[in-house]
Amino acid sequence: PGKIFCVVTDADISRAWAPMDTRGSRIHYLAPTQRVVERLRLYGVPKENITLTGFPLPKENIGEKEKILKQDLWRRLRVLDPTGVFHKNYGDTLEQFLGKKPKCIYCKDQRVWVMFAIGGAGAQRNLAAKVLKSLSVHIKTGKIGMHLVAGIHNDVEQFFKKHIKKLGLANFMGKGIKIVSAQTKDEYFHEFNMALRETDVLWTKPSELSFYSALGVPIIIAPPIGSQEFFNKYWLEVIGAGVAQENPKYTHEWIMDYLDNGWIAESALQGYLEAPRGGVENIRNVVFK
Rank of each mutant, 00 (worst) to 15 (best):
K162L: 06
Y212V: 06
K185Y: 11
H163N: 15
N171C: 06
I179T: 14
F172D: 05
L196W: 02
K161A: 04
R197D: 01
R197F: 00
S213H: 04
Y188A: 01
Q183V: 10
S210N: 02
I164N: 03
M194C: 01
Y188F: 15
S207H: 10
A170C: 00
K175H: 08
L169K: 05
V180L: 08
P218R: 06
D186K: 15
T184W: 02
D200Q: 09
D200L: 07
W203N: 02
F172N: 03
E187D: 15
F172T: 01
G174E: 03
K178N: 13
K161C: 09
N193S: 08
A182W: 09
N193C: 04
K166R: 10
S181W: 14
G216L: 05
G174L: 04
L167F: 15
L169I: 03
M194P: 00
T204V: 07
T199F: 09
E208S: 15
V217F: 00
G216M: 07
K178R: 15
G176M: 09
D186R: 12
P206N: 11
S207N: 12
L202A: 10
K165M: 03
Q183K: 15
K161W: 09
L209T: 14
K162W: 04
M194Q: 11
Y212T: 08
L167C: 08
V180I: 15
P206V: 12
E187H: 14
E208V: 14
M173W: 04
M194A: 03
D200S: 11
E191N: 14
E187M: 14
W203T: 09
K185R: 14
I177H: 12
A195L: 05
M194D: 05
D186G: 00
M173L: 15
K185V: 14
L196S: 11
K178L: 10
T199S: 12
T184S: 15
T184Y: 07
F160C: 01
S181T: 15
L167G: 08
I177V: 13
D186I: 15
L196Y: 02
F192D: 05
L167W: 08
K162H: 13
T199A: 10
P206E: 12
G216E: 07
H190D: 08
E208F: 11
A195Q: 04
N171F: 05
K185A: 13
A195Y: 03
K178Y: 08
D186C: 06
K178I: 14
L215W: 12
L167D: 12
Y212S: 01
W203I: 07
I164D: 02
N193P: 00
E191S: 13
L209R: 04
D186V: 14
F192P: 06
I164Q: 02
G174Y: 04
I219N: 08
K162E: 10
W203E: 02
A195P: 09
P218Y: 03
K175P: 00
K185I: 13
K161V: 05
K175M: 04
K178P: 02
N171H: 12
E191Q: 12
T204I: 01
L167N: 12
G176T: 06
V201Q: 03
G168Y: 05
K165A: 09
S210L: 11
G216I: 06
K165G: 01
R197Y: 00
E208G: 15
E198H: 11
G176Q: 10
S181E: 13
D200C: 12
E208H: 09
S207Q: 08
T204S: 13
M194H: 02
T204A: 10
A182T: 08
K205F: 09
